[in-house]
Amino acid sequence: MAAGGDHGSPDSYRSPLASRYASPEMCFVFSDRYKFRTWRQLWLWLAEAEQTLGLPITDEQIQEMKSNLENIDFKMAAEEEKRLRHDVMAHVHTFGHCCPKAAGIIHLGATSCYVGDNTDLIILRNALDLLLPKLARVISRLADFAKERASLPTLGFTHFQPAQLTTVGKRCCLWIQDLCMDLQNLKRVRDDLRFRGVKGTTGTQASFLQLFEGDDHKVEQLDKMVTEKAGFKRAFIITGQTYTRKVDIEVLSVLASLGASVHKICTDIRLLANLKEMEEPFEKQQIGSSAMPYKRNPMRSERCCSLARHLMTLVMDPLQTASVQWFERTLDDSANRRICLAEAFLTADTILNTLQNISEGLVVYPKVIERRIRQELPFMATENIIMAMVKAGGSRQDCHEKIRVLSQQAASVVKQEGGDNDLIERIQVDAYFSPIHSQLDHLLDPSSFTGRASQQVQRFLEEEVYPLLKPYESVMKVKAELCL
């Protein structure tokens, strides 16, 4: 049975990233139509530049190519590739079939990587351009969430054990800070992308030097003109047959890092959902379990974690691919890159769409948070109580021993009897502590235990987050809708 299948058929496997999760716009960027249309555009740009620099290419040939950029006979191309065992030459023939007058000058002087690699770089750039505003929107939604809850005390956790208090907004800023680093890295790697350009079979530009009869300047002009037509500021000066596969490492490393950030955020949300302090959106008709109707599973956060793990592992592909590119190139890269580049971007696209949807509907339960604080705060307040007693004339050592005994009794009630923490009640009825009984409410005010959390939130948002989001103001209103 021949390899390949009808990918629109229910009898043929289709990647869930495309069929179930990723956005239509990201799927289109990695589609065959987008790819092969870009090949034709690159052939047109090459012909236009070659004509401008004096090669015998007519206006009629150029116009014929322009008129057929979208006229792609995919069936013919597939048949040609089956016959020739070469995808680029299959599309040269297919393009030439609908451009008979231009057929002889299509791909003039070029090698397969002229269309293959340059198209990949265009796709990487455009895919990054799709991700950047999506990530900015996630940051914006979380920034709104953090600002609104900047002063809401909550129990902090280290080692997932109760620690000092923080605020809900401050905790959210930990998430935002990681995503801001990801946004900066995505922008950097996007701006650092260079075009492969017009380089020939081993990167020496020998074929173009021959076409222009040894004119170095025209060869350099050709490279520059096509690079500018493709919208790049610069091209690699040095290439082998391909652009260095280190570029793929750079791009997928940034995406993998984004995956790590999203995994951490969504894990926190899942843990908070278990504590009943916070939940992701839950639709009115949504079913959490087929057997347990009360369940409210954090399905979206779980999906993000599941896909983020996949995204983090994909960076190993370009690392290994770059390491086995012998001399000017081997074909070890080809099949692998067809999979890992598309999957990385479709996965990143999915987790950003999902995280935006989550961040637009996060639900906080202040009463649950308050109750958990009441359970733990008495123990945390013991040092403040000791200091207040010393100020009232008591002995630190005597007070410490009193607190120690009462704390152990209260802990026994919590752990052995399943009761509430009654340390404060014990202190309130103990005559030894009568000098500070009137101060206990103040000493137990949760806001006095959150330090500068709310001020940190305000400063972080104003100095770091809002300036970073400013270039994306025009796209901030787009909502994230999930079908599944």
Rank of each mutant, 00 (worst) to 15 (best):
S359H: 01
A78G: 08
E250S: 13
K233F: 04
I358T: 08
D73C: 02
D349K: 13
L377W: 02
V219D: 00
T242V: 00
E360Q: 13
G240V: 07
T267I: 03
I62W: 09
S23L: 13
S207H: 00
G240Q: 02
T321W: 01
E464Q: 14
L275E: 12
S140Y: 00
V465D: 12
T158E: 03
F327W: 05
R296C: 07
L319G: 10
T267N: 02
K75T: 11
P378Q: 14
T201A: 01
F160V: 03
Q456V: 06
Y432L: 11
R452I: 13
A431S: 02
H107E: 01
E80R: 11
L186Y: 03
A163M: 08
A163N: 14
E280M: 15
K276T: 08
R374C: 03
Q161H: 03
S67K: 14
C113G: 10
L108H: 13
I287T: 04
S395H: 12
S407W: 07
T52V: 01
K402I: 15
F30Q: 03
S140I: 01
M299H: 08
R452M: 04
L53E: 03
H86W: 11
L341S: 05
G361W: 08
C172A: 02
A260E: 02
P467L: 10
L443Q: 05
T58H: 13
S9L: 14
A308T: 12
L252F: 12
S151E: 07
D182E: 03
S359R: 15
T94A: 09
Q210L: 01
L132T: 08
M65K: 05
M65R: 07
F232W: 04
R83I: 11
I72S: 04
C304T: 12
E376A: 04
D182M: 08
K199S: 07
P446T: 09
L130V: 07
L128C: 06
A335T: 08
L179Q: 09
I105M: 15
L211W: 01
G214L: 02
D422E: 04
E464D: 01
L406N: 07
Q210H: 15
T204Q: 01
Q164G: 03
D191W: 05
Q63I: 04
A260C: 01
E383M: 13
E343S: 05
V368Q: 03
M181H: 15
V475I: 02
V465M: 01
R190L: 05
Y365L: 08
P153L: 06
N71Y: 01
L468N: 10
T239A: 05
S23Q: 12
E343T: 14
V363C: 15
Q409D: 05
M278T: 06
C305M: 11
S395Q: 14
L209P: 10
F145P: 02
F379T: 09
F379W: 07
C305Q: 01
H159E: 00
K101Q: 07
L444M: 15
D191N: 14
S31L: 08
A163R: 02
I427Q: 14
M316R: 09
K35V: 01
L108K: 03
Q428A: 00
K35C: 14
T58D: 14
F232D: 01
E25R: 15
L255V: 08
S257V: 04
C113F: 11
E79I: 10
W45H: 01
E462I: 15
P467N: 14
Q286K: 05
T111F: 04
Q375V: 01
D32I: 02
V363F: 13
R171N: 01
E70I: 10
L443K: 00
L461G: 10
M278Q: 00
P435H: 09
P133C: 11
T267H: 14
C399T: 09
M476S: 13
R337V: 00
I339L: 06
T450A: 07
S151T: 08
S412K: 04
K470W: 08
A230W: 07
E401Q: 01
P281D: 00
A480C: 13
L121M: 00
R426Q: 14
L46E: 08
I386L: 11
L307P: 13
E48K: 08
K82C: 07
R188V: 08
N384C: 15
F30M: 03
L179W: 07
E277H: 12
T242A: 12
M278N: 12
K199R: 09
N421M: 10
L128S: 14
M89Y: 11
S257W: 10
A206Q: 12
M380V: 12
E70R: 13
E250C: 14
R37I: 10
N336K: 08
Q456Y: 14
T227N: 01
E463A: 06
V475G: 09
Q320V: 12
D349P: 04
Q241R: 05
L272F: 12
R404A: 04
A335D: 04
N118K: 04
T244F: 09
V405G: 04
I105S: 04
V475M: 10
Y114Q: 00
A335P: 11
L152N: 10
R40V: 03
R270W: 14
N357R: 09
G197I: 00
D332C: 00
D11R: 06
Q456K: 07
H7D: 08
K170W: 09
L314Y: 10
R303D: 10
L84P: 00
M89R: 04
F28M: 12
V457Y: 00
R149Q: 01
K264W: 04
V189N: 09
K391A: 14
Y432F: 12
A308H: 13
K170P: 07
M292P: 09
C27Q: 11
G109K: 06
A348C: 05
K233H: 01
H107N: 14
R149V: 02
L142V: 02
A411F: 03
K233W: 00
L355K: 01
A344Q: 01
E50W: 00
D216M: 02
S12F: 07
K147D: 10
G116D: 09
P446Y: 15
D268C: 12
A348L: 05
N118W: 01
P293Y: 12
Q41L: 07
G203D: 00
N185S: 06
I106V: 08
L484V: 12
T450D: 08
R452A: 08
S31Y: 04
L362F: 13
M387T: 15
Y21E: 09
Q285A: 14
L423S: 07
R404G: 10
R396N: 15
C266R: 09
I386G: 11
S448H: 13
M476E: 13
C483L: 08
V29G: 03
G259P: 00
R33F: 08
S474A: 11
F236N: 11
Q164I: 07
W45N: 01
L17R: 01
A90Y: 13
A3I: 03
M181V: 04
H107T: 13
K367E: 15
E48M: 08
K470P: 07
A2N: 15
G259A: 07
F160S: 10
K246Q: 11
S289M: 02
P153T: 06
H91N: 02
S301R: 13
E401A: 10
N185Q: 10
